[in-house]
Amino acid sequence: MLLVIIRTLILYMATVLLLRVMGKRQIGQLQPYELVVIIMISELAAIPMQNTGIPLLYGIIPIFVLVAAQVALSYISLKSQKARGFICGKPSILIAKSKVMDEELKRLRYNMNDLLEQLRQKDIPDITDVEYAILETSGQLSVILKSHKRPVQPEDLKITTEYEGLPITLVLDGRIIEENLERVNIDVNWLENQMEKHQIKSVQDVLFAIIDTRGQFYYQLKSLAE
């Protein structure tokens, strides 16, 4: 039993490490060849877990080879546009100026019910509001609405907005993120002064604290149950 547990943990850590090498894309964003690699990795990892008579390397080596092949294909598709079209495919226009490209639907074996369902999921019940609908290589549907149907932006109303940027986390789960303090050119003394101003007794009581691009300090304390 102990041997099974150890083998399982080794395979689990090896698989997680190699999947990290593949990148951070979610399942819905994977290209077909990447999805195939993940399915095959799961099968290869399961075999040595179930059968202790199979050497552990017989599971790890094929997984390593698959990940190396995936990384190589990704690099090739990054450098060559022709290879990218062959490996990943090309986006397909399903709707152009509110007209459904029925020949393209037939070629992709993509029926109207699927198309209308995808539009409804994007809160677009009326196909006449669509300028373009593009089926991406990942299988997701991108929709571009007609200009008069798009949400109004401040720029449309000639309204000038302030730059927001990205808030920087200063404290996370009771621990000061010193590298982030350096990024915004502040020190621990400034943070301690802010905590004192807001009557925070200890940094360990802080769930998170951030500073926005306007220099505003915001925080939340841990719950009393903790």
Rank of each mutant, 00 (worst) to 15 (best):
P32G: 02
P125I: 01
N51W: 03
K146M: 11
W190F: 14
L18C: 08
L57Q: 11
E182W: 01
P32Q: 04
V16T: 12
I27W: 03
L56G: 09
L56Q: 09
L191G: 10
G53K: 06
I168G: 00
I5L: 14
M22L: 09
K82Q: 13
N189F: 12
M112D: 10
Q216C: 06
I168K: 02
E103M: 04
G215N: 11
K90I: 09
D102C: 04
V71N: 02
V67I: 13
A83V: 03
I186N: 04
I5V: 12
V37W: 00
I5Q: 11
V152I: 15
H148L: 08
R214M: 11
T52V: 14
I76T: 10
E178L: 02
Q26D: 05
Q31G: 00
L73T: 05
I63L: 07
Q31P: 01
E103R: 07
G139R: 00
K82G: 11
L44M: 15
D205L: 07
I186M: 15
I39F: 15
E196Y: 08
L35Y: 06
I27C: 00
G59P: 13
L11K: 12
G215E: 13
E196Q: 14
L78G: 10
I87H: 03
K97I: 07
I177S: 03
K158H: 14
N51I: 07
L9Y: 12
R175M: 09
V21N: 00
V36F: 02
R25D: 01
R20I: 03
V67H: 01
Q81C: 06
V4R: 14
I168L: 04
T169S: 11
D156E: 11
I134G: 00
S77N: 05
E34D: 01
L73Q: 03
R7K: 15
T160M: 11
K149S: 10
M195W: 13
Q153S: 12
F217C: 09
L221T: 13
Q216I: 09
V65H: 08
L73M: 15
N111Y: 09
V188D: 05
L56V: 11
I186F: 05
S74G: 13
E131L: 14
F64G: 06
L170K: 04
G89E: 02
G28V: 04
L221D: 04
M1Q: 09
L35A: 01
G165F: 01
Y218P: 00
